[in-house]
């Protein structure tokens, strides 16, 4: 399985909510890691089997805007389909705009009763940033709970 980046939660930034840092060698890895962090807030990812699969296609003019619409799309899909996702394949291509194509996999909330932690309401622009590091890229995200 290809590497999909890493994430860690940040304390002291959003006392009433949650914040995380997602890192990877490239943008696609950062976006995978950010998606994993998002769902790790809601559920223990190891409990979420890849039963259902969905395709996602998005466009945006900048990297951080694409990150915002990507994570917001996942929050929307979670509510509408009542599913939680744990596995993400992301491809990002640059043209006139940045284009994201992803396959996401997960399971129905009904199969995860008693295993969920807390829900995510929305993604915020607060401190939202993607920056270069010595080993790749790092995104900072704050989510509203």
């Amino acid at each position: 399985m290809p590497p999909k980046g890493e994430f860690r939660f940040l304390d002291g930034i959003a006392p009433a909510d949650a914040a995380f840092e997602a890192t990877g060698h490239d943008l696609a890895e950062v976006f995978c890691a950010a998606a994993s962090a998002l769902f790790a807030i809601i559920v223990d990812l190891e409990q979420v089997k890849a039963i259902v699969s969905r395709q996602v296609t998005l466009e945006a003019e900048s990297q951080d805007e694409l990150l915002y619409v990507w994570l917001s799309e996942l929050v929307y899909l979670k509510d509408v389909h009542r599913e939680l996702y744990s596995d993400f394949d992301v491809v990002i291509t640059a043209g006139e705009t940045l284009r994201l194509q992803a396959t996401i996999r997960g399971d129905s909330v009904d199969n995860l009763v008693g295993l969920t932690l807390i829900d995510v309401k929305a993604i915020t622009y607060h401190l939202l940033a993607i920056e270069s590091t010595t080993s790749g890229l790092k995104a900072t995200v704050v989510v509203d709970l």
């Binding site: 939660f9 304390d11 002291g12 959003a14 006392p15 009433a16 909510d17 949650a18 807390i118 709970l145």
Partner: peptide, 8 residues
């Protein structure tokens, strides 16, 4: 008013 983070 919250004073302590959820993580904490």
């Amino acid at each position: 008013g919250r004073t302590m983070s959820r993580m904490h």
